[in-house]
C-alpha cells in the first residue's frame, strides 16, 4: 500500500489533488481512498489531504501518520509546519518551490524533489493552479500512478 499526504493552504487544491490521484489510481485498476484532514476549513489555513493506493481492497480508515510520499503545494508551508513529520525513512517529498532540494535543509534520509510548479502554472495556465504540475511530477518520480491514468482524469 502507498500512502500519500498532501500539504496545502485552504483553497489551493490539496483536496482536489488527492481526488485526482485516487481517480487516476482507479484507472490503473488499483484500489484507492482519499480524504481531507477534516477541519473547519478556511482559505489560507494549512490543510492536509490523504491518499491510499493498493492492489488489495483498502480497509484501513484511520488518518495517515507515516506516509510514503508527501506533496507540498505551497513553499511557505515548509516554515509553518513540519512537512516531513512521520514521512517514512527513504520516503519521497515533492515540494513546490523555486529552490533546489539541497537548499531546503531537509533530513538526508528523505528523497527530496522540488518543482517550480507556480512558475509552470503561471506560464501555461496564467493562473497559479499548482497541483497539475505537481501531479505530473508525482507520476514521473514515484510511479504511484501512471501518467496516462493521470491524464485520463482530465476527461471527467
Amino acid at each position: 500500500m502507498i500512502e500519500i499526504k498532501i500539504w496545502g493552504r485552504g483553497g489551493q487544491g490539496a483536496v482536489t489533488t488527492g481526488q485526482i490521484i485516487a481517480i487516476a489510481a482507479l484507472h490503473d485498476r488499483k484500489n484507492c481512498q482519499t480524504f481531507p484532514n477534516f477541519g473547519v476549513e478556511r482559505r489560507g489555513a494549512p490543510v492536509e489531504a490523504f491518499v491510499r493506493i493498493d492492489k488489495e481492497p483498502i480497509r484501513l480508515r484511520s488518518q495517515i501518520y507515516a506516509p510514503d510520499i508527501v506533496i507540498v503545494l505551497d513553499p511557505t508551508l515548509i516554515n509553518a509546519v513540519d512537512v516531513t513529520k512521520g514521512l517514512k525513512d527513504g520516503g519521497t517529498i515533492i515540494i513546490n518551490t523555486s529552490k533546489k532540494p539541497k537548499d531546503l535543509n531537509l533530513d538526508k534520509k528523505f528523497k527530496v524533489y522540488t518543482v517550480d510548479a507556480t512558475a509552470v502554472a503561471m506560464e501555461i495556465f496564467k493562473r497559479p493552479i499548482v497541483n497539475t504540475p505537481l501531479l505530473g511530477a508525482l507520476s514521473a518520480i514515484t510511479k504511484a500512478v501512471s501518467l496516462k491514468s493521470m491524464q485520463l482524469t482530465r476527461a471527467r
Partner: peptide, 10 residues
C-alpha cells in the same frame, strides 16, 4: 461523519 461521509473511494 467525515470518517466516511467525506471519503472518496471506488
Amino acid at each position: 461523519g467525515f470518517t466516511l461521509s467525506h471519503v472518496w473511494e471506488p
